[in-house]
Design a protein around this nucleic acid. Sequence first.
DNA 1: AACGATTCCGGAAACGATTTTGGAAGGAGG
DNA 2: CCTCCTTCCAAAATCGTTTCCGGAATCGTT
Lengths: 341, 341
Amino acid sequence: MGQGKVTILDVAKHAGVVPSTVSRVLNGYPDVSEETRTRVLKAIETLGYKPNRAARVFRTGRTQTVSLILPMVGTDFYIRLINAIDGELARYDYDAALFPLLSQRRLERYRDPGALPYHADGLLISSLNPDHLFPGGKIPADLPTVLIDIYHPAYDTVTVDNVKGGYLAGEHLAERPAETFAVMVEERFNTPFASGVFRDRLQGFKQALLDAGQPLPEENVITVEFSWDGGRIAAREILNRCRGPINVFASCDLLARDVMDELRHRDLPIGREVRLMGFDDQPWAEDCNLSTVRQPIEAMGAFAVKLLLKRMKEPDRKLTHKVFEPQLAVRGSTKGGESGG
Amino acid sequence: MGQGKVTILDVAKHAGVVPSTVSRVLNGYPDVSEETRTRVLKAIETLGYKPNRAARVFRTGRTQTVSLILPMVGTDFYIRLINAIDGELARYDYDAALFPLLSQRRLERYRDPGALPYHADGLLISSLNPDHLFPGGKIPADLPTVLIDIYHPAYDTVTVDNVKGGYLAGEHLAERPAETFAVMVEERFNTPFASGVFRDRLQGFKQALLDAGQPLPEENVITVEFSWDGGRIAAREILNRCRGPINVFASCDLLARDVMDELRHRDLPIGREVRLMGFDDQPWAEDCNLSTVRQPIEAMGAFAVKLLLKRMKEPDRKLTHKVFEPQLAVRGSTKGGESGG
DNA sequence: AACGATTCCGGAAACGATTTTGGAAGGAGG
DNA sequence: CCTCCTTCCAAAATCGTTTCCGGAATCGTT
């Protein structure tokens, strides 16, 4: 029963009350006697009434929805971020809608202020620079917005200190003297998709080595494309160039795993002659026994949600630029060879 | 200019016309002279008018949106599927909103017919069984719906013939006589997340071996949990149990890659003494030289979108159950050892 | 018994667009 | 000059809810 055309008016009529009373029941407002409440509830039940979301959104101007715009959904970073954000939003009775920027066409559609992502109470943007994303650098719709994993002076931002992360990795490896290499992922700048995190990690890493008096030669920075065997290629090049003890810093764990596979293939014991660090602390990094740098992604996601909700409540509050600290996760892949006591 | 509160009425006033005329201009309807059109357009420009999506949706009852509900977003299958669906929908001027079922809490929210995913013109559900997903098995909102990667008699469905895929793999390996193993991923049934694809693949595989007169012993089916090193563990067990030529069928490529890593670690030449097949044809399978079974995910996504749009146009059309054929992708990991000429 | 406060509910005006209807102006044809 | 058809636009109804206002009934206090 209920052909989907039942309105609040029908319910009101059936219960012998007026629409505003039904609305009060629906929204849990006070000023409704227990008796009328049950009568209305019963009418809703028997008529199979389902509130019209469009009408409600239209009237109230609130969607109880937050849109999350991000480059893609497939990497571990985004998976964890999505999980964290979705979970936190659910706690506050908000829905989350995901909008990956999977094609040029999509991106162009999202330049229209009337596009679906802006049909929300707030906006979370991850790893994308509004300056490059939108013409004029302004987000099409005027929504409360928080940026994640990318810094921008004009928005609330939640980032992790990648320079610091690289520095930690550098410090850690510098304690174990060896010929040192850094494997980088190629970033294409001047696109919305280059957030500069890899550059920052490398910068911190170099600085740490410099501070330790072991500056990294420029030719020891090996840049590879991000493909499934980029790390293998890099590993081979390193092993061709060098025989003694080696330190390798890979700017992300995926890369590190490929390097590790290649080393294992050559039966090189990891952690003694060759030491390896990743970055990200992917879920499998512990199983791999891979030393790495951990980003508190879950905390970042939760913080971003809370920040956005605050911004939605007080549009005029001053900007927040939260920077999370990465943490060193030392495991077997760098265990041997300390120089100091 | 334009505090975000400009309505169609303001535009009309400014242009010296009536709201309905502005609406006609906005929607490209006829019966507007070129002169008024430009006048209205100019008023829109100077006032910075942005149409109110909520009002439009409310009035028209159309959202130009399709919701995609799926278990998660991180695996290659879903990434490709999302890409395909998103791209196809964009071609028809539809927006796509993603709703991964990441937590129990989320799932419960989505049982409410007023939840965000149902605020759309149509619904795509991937890999989830409505019977287990929703109490009573009925989708909360009465929307045009197409199921992907799972069969159900009461809905339009788009699936791939996993039994056939397993059969192809079995046939292929049976031509290369050896002790044969199958590595399975554990599926938890009676949850919304068990679509049965792995079971189907194994069933087809067994049948092929049976038809070839080389039935697969039950103890040669090795079931592992889906974790990063499940494949390694399986590989070790297989190698412990058997010395001669070996055929291994892994029910997905991820598993196959782990098996491969373990074999490589032991310096066993893949493709001669040990032959390996995967399933899925992940993007990196070609680089790995891994024989596998390819699912036409892109075609499935595009077909599902077209089917949904048809269903939206004609709610009474008869059900479609489209089954796509998987294809064998023969590569180096199974090249050697044919028995026949 | 009088009075203000509280509880409960009805009436009606919004919210901002689309859609339907009707009619004025202008042109063509008899 | 009258009729008939286009072309163009105005007027008003409408979508389904929420919210504001106000009045009647009930309650508690003095």
